[in-house]
Write a protein that binds this DNA or RNA. Structure first.
Ligand SMILES: Nc1ncnc2c1ncn2[C@@H]1O[C@H](COP(=O)(O)OP(=O)(O)OP(=O)(O)O)[C@@H](O)[C@H]1O
Length: 905
DNA sequence: AGTACGAATTGTATT
DNA sequence: AATTCGTACT
């Protein structure tokens, strides 16, 4: 099937693939083959005689880049050995390559460091300290968010000054300036700088731009809807000479607005490139008709969008399922059990684990799933999230490497100077920093002078001497030898193992920690084998630019594992079976988006909807959406509402609006409570000694930010229309000496795992949190039953054939036969095996399952939907009378919303 | 001076 | 949960 081009392309696709010059836009919905167009087009260019290395394709993730490389080489058959393929990379790695070539031009060291989120936070903290802004006023993460916003619009600190008025913003601007200075002094760039500096390079240094734009004759960009202003400029700069620019994207899948992406770039492509050819694709080849139906229903709720047709090229398929669970553990356990069944079947319905993905919104969600999957013995790969490279050990060691490569790198230097503890305490470090500031020299430069500084103790000075000797020795070796050759010895010399043993008392924890160090060595070796010209800097760079689950090792593991990832990372991918979990108000329309929308009137929720749309359209055959009615948060059980998006997909618009309304009310109540609490105990911050004490502290709170207040203003507008006038802000003295870094003070382990509190186990049979529920709820329930009278009655009661296949393996012996297709056809009210099985095992299981039918007879399906709008439910979970018993995937009853209206036609 | 421990606080998404 | 701060110990 590789032979002729045109195999596997419809006519619109073929048009795009064979338009080989000039600007070209493919604007089309999910799964219509946009990425395929890019791949085929690259192949076609090469067949037509274009040299592969004259083609640059830009993707959004490293994973996507690898995939594209692979697919093109498949299309082209074996490529001649030694011949370079097309260049496929992400914007960020492209920029790094450009910048390494021109770093000096911009005044950076050639081996500039790249700061990831963690490094940025350290720096932001220093910056805030330097401008004397307490972190109650502005947290490092808030600062970074603002700074990133400015940077991705190309706004400098100086320019920003004229643009802001709120005084927290002014503080932020000052901190921004300081932050930039610190970055510069460290010879480091953050992620935004990679783009910003590239753009600047092209703008201010025509010769550099010329050199770079001359490297390629064709430029192709995937996911163009998610480019930000800088990326847009970079694209323009690179394409304006040859004009062979092909961009592909879908405005409905624009999900990176939070980091400055603007859909306008794709929507206005035609005006930027008036001679552009525009191709639209309308046939979705990925999903079943059912899935497309839901996706279309959903996305239609977004007002501002480029309307497009999206129709399924495939058959109807099975009806997606909507499941409700008592809490996140039940959700995870039940899904794990179901997956276990699917991947362990012996008949031909068996599904490989790699065909299954669990998708979620936030990074805290996978925890329950990881546990459940592990208990069930299901192999999985968690993509993204807390990266391997984010672990403390790894960061420590990488910091050594970075300092070896770039001695200016202050964040890394401060991290390692006393790690392992070698007797260089905070006061010594402070003195050194002070001296560095006085001399305007980098910290590293003043270290040799340590003995001459009075406030540096003798032992500390000696320790510094040894530290420097160590660095010198290995810096020299790093010039001659491969990293893998000297790294083991380096570990020994640093005595990092002893550090781990000192820090962690628990032997098993010591072992895991040390294991991660060994894994680091592995990944060094892997890198050196793969890379054409391995280098210290190259390795460090890769670790910062690639997140976990993004290297080829993970690709391999994924071949036999279930994939867990966020919706954001799932963009562009597809899986035969998808579980979209945690579909709840507050999570999928994320709380913050709701707040932002009602306070700033933005369209933050639309972006959440797009996220849901992306999620739904990842599924090829089977889609399961689930939510938990309650969720543990900060040790308290919190009731959750089902996501409005679930209802929108189902065509129950009125229901979804009610939910939206409830969600807002709930949020308002929460905010109100938080404020009340904040005002009752303002004494908390009794640190009176702060010289710059802002006297505005009294009466009504400070000036600041917090969306919280904004909401309050909107919603309870009553009296409070005090416009936060810009009072005299505490002018921070210019450049006070940088604050001392915190000595590595890590605490020990030994915290016994707080046994996950048992869910409301025996409590509340049918989870009628009745007392608190505002009257509204009950009435809302009934109408939920969809406009499908015929089956309607049957459905509510009918718990979906519970994870049919799920149980077999572990629970009943001969339960194999189930497999009742998930279609709505299932026999009514047969709370299957569940009850009978559950009781003995887990107490927490029984109630929902068994209780449901009796307690809430007819409308059984409905209540769960709105059961718990009350905000203040937080009942402390019952005592840990829960036998810690992880083994059997607990089997939990699920319920339906009601009937689903099938795709028309 | 340096380190260890406990308490308190707060948590979108990603290159 | 992870970090940071305050406090007490070596
Ligand atoms: N003409 C075609 N015939 C058969 N299958 C196709 C055709 N075009 C695309 N496909 C298949 O449809 C699926 C989706 O394709 P692709 O990933 O390129 O879509 P996309 O538009 O990039 O999707 P998304 O917007 O979700 O990233 C892939 O499995 C692809 O192989």
């Amino acid at each position: 099937m590789r032979g002729t081009l045109g195999d596997g392309l419809n006519s619109a696709q073929r048009t795009a693939v064979t338009t080989l010059s000039g600007p070209l836009l493919v604007l089309a919905g999910a799964g219509t083959g946009k990425t395929r167009v890019i791949t085929f087009r690259i192949a076609e260019l090469i067949r037509g005689g274009t040299k592969p290395n004259r083609i640059l394709a830009v993707t959004f993730t490293n994973k996507a880049a690898r995939e594209m490389k692979e697919r093109t080489s498949q299309l082209l058959g074996r490529k001649k050995k030694g011949e370079a393929g097309p260049e496929v990379s992400t914007f960020h790695s492209l920029c790094v390559r450009v910048l390494r070539r021109h770093a000096r031009t911009l005044g950076y060291p050639e081996h500039f460091s790249i700061y990831d989120r963690g490094d940025q936070e350290s720096l932001a903290r220093s910056a805030l300290r330097d401008v004397r802004v307490g972190h109650e006023k502005l947290r490092p993460s808030d600062l970074l968010h603002k700074v990133s916003g400015w940077k991705s619009q190309g706004i400098t600190a100086k320019e920003a000054e004229g643009l802001v008025s709120k005084d927290t913003d002014l503080l932020a601007v000052m901190a921004y300036g300081r932050y930039e200075a610190l970055l510069r002094a460290s010879g480091a760039m953050d992620f935004d700088d990679l783009l910003l500096n590239t753009e600047r390079l092209f703008r201010e240094h025509p010769e550099a731009r010329f050199a770079e734009e001359s490297r390629f004759d064709h430029l192709l960009i995937d996911e163009y809807q998610d480019t930000n202003g800088l990326q847009y400029q970079i694209v323009k700069a690179l394409a304006s000479r040859h004009r062979n620019l092909c961009v592909v994207g879908d405005d409905d899948q624009s999900i990176y607005g939070f980091r400055g992406a603007e859909v306008e770039h794709i929507l206005h492509f035609k005006s930027d490139w008036p001679d552009a050819k525009v191709v639209r694709l309308e046939d979705n080849y990925r999903c079943t008709e059912w899935i497309i139906h839901l996706a279309n229903n959903l996305i239609a709720h977004n007002k501002a969008r480029h309307d497009k047709v999206l129709r399924a090229a495939r058959g109807r398929g099975v009806a997606p399922r909507f499941l409700a669970f008592e809490d996140e553990e039940s959700e995870a356990d039940a899904i794990a059990a179901e997956i276990h069944g699917k991947i362990n079947r012996q008949d031909d319905e068996r599904i490989p684990a790699s065909h299954i993905a669990i998708l979620f919104r936030t990074n805290e969600q996978p925890r329950a799933f990881e546990q459940a999957l592990r208990r069930a013995g299901i192999p999985y790969v968690l993509v993204g999230g807390q990266s391997f490279f984010d672990r403390k050990e790894i960061k420590d060691l990488l910091s050594y490497l970075r300092v070896l490569a770039n001695p200016l790198d202050e964040v890394s230097l401060l991290r390692i100077i006393n790690t392992p503890a070698r007797g260089i305490g905070t006061s010594s470090i402070e003195a050194l920093l002070k001296k560095a500031v006085e001399e305007g020299a980098p910290l590293m430069k003043v270290l040799p002078d340590a003995p001459k500084i009075a406030s540096v103790s003798q032992p500390a000075a000696n320790a510094i001497g040894e530290f420097l000797a160590l660095l010198d020795e290995f810096r020299a070796r790093s010039r001659r030898e491969l990293l893998s050759q000297w790294f083991p010895e380096f570990l020994a010399r640093v005595n990092y193992k002893a550090e781990i043993e000192r820090q962690y008392k628990d032997p098993s924890e010591q072992e895991t920690r040390w294991n991660t160090v060994e894994q680091l060595l592995n990944s060094i070796v892997t890198y050196e084998n793969r890379s054409e010209s391995p280098s210290l800097i190259g390795f460090v760079e890769e670790t910062t630019l690639m997140s976990q689950g993004d290297d080829d090792d993970d690709d391999k593991r994924r071949e036999h594992s279930v994939t867990l990832m966020t919706l954001h990372s799932a963009k562009g991918l597809e899986f035969p079976e998808v579980y979209l979990v945690g579909m709840e108000e507050g999570i999928l329309p994320h709380k913050r988006s709701v707040i932002e929308q009602i306070s700033h009137g933005s369209s933050a929720i639309d972006e959440e909807r797009r996220l849901a749309y992306v999620g739904v359209t990842r599924a090829q055959n089977v889609l399961t959406l689930s939510y938990a009615k309650g969720r543990m948060k900060w040790g308290k059980l919190r009731n959750q509402l089902p996501s409005r998006f679930l209802l929108e997909m189902r065509g129950q618009t009125d229901k979804s609006q009610e939910i939206a309304q409830l969600a807002v009310e709930q949020l308002s109540r929460e905010i109100e409570r938080a404020e009340a609490k904040a005002e009752t105990e303002p004494k908390g911050k009794g640190k009176g000694k702060k010289s710059a004490s802002p006297r505005k502290k009294s009466g009504d709170e400070g000036p600041s930010d917090a969306p919280v207040q904004a909401v309050r203003r909107k919603k309870f507008d009553s009296n409070g229309q005090k416009v936060p006038s810009v009072t005299a802000r505490p002018a921070p003295p210019p450049v006070p000496p940088p604050a001392p870094p915190k000595a590595a003070s890590s605490e020990s382990a030994a915290v016994s795992p707080p046994s996950p509190v048992a869910p409301p186990s025996a409590v509340s049979p049918a989870i009628p949190s009745a007392p608190l529920a505002p009257g509204a709820t009950p009435e809302i329930a009934p109408p939920v039953a969809p406009p499908a009278p015929p089956i309607a009655s049957a459905v509510p009661a009918a718990p979906v054939t519970p994870p049919a296949a799920a149980a077999p393996p572990i629970m009943p012996p001969a339960a194999a036969p189930p497999a009742t297709p998930p279609a709505a056809a299932a026999p009514p009210a047969t709370p299957p095996a569940a009850p009978s099985v559950a009781p003995p095992t887990a107490p927490s299981v029984a109630p929902p399952a068994a209780a449901a039918p009796p307690a809430t007879p007819p409308a059984a399906a409905a209540p769960p939907i709105i059961s718990a709008p009350a905000p203040a439910v937080e009942r402390p979970a019952p005592a840990p009378s829960h036998p810690r018993r992880p083994d059997p995937p607990r089997f939990v009853q699920v319920s339906l919303f009601g009937d689903l209206e099938p795709p028309r036609k």
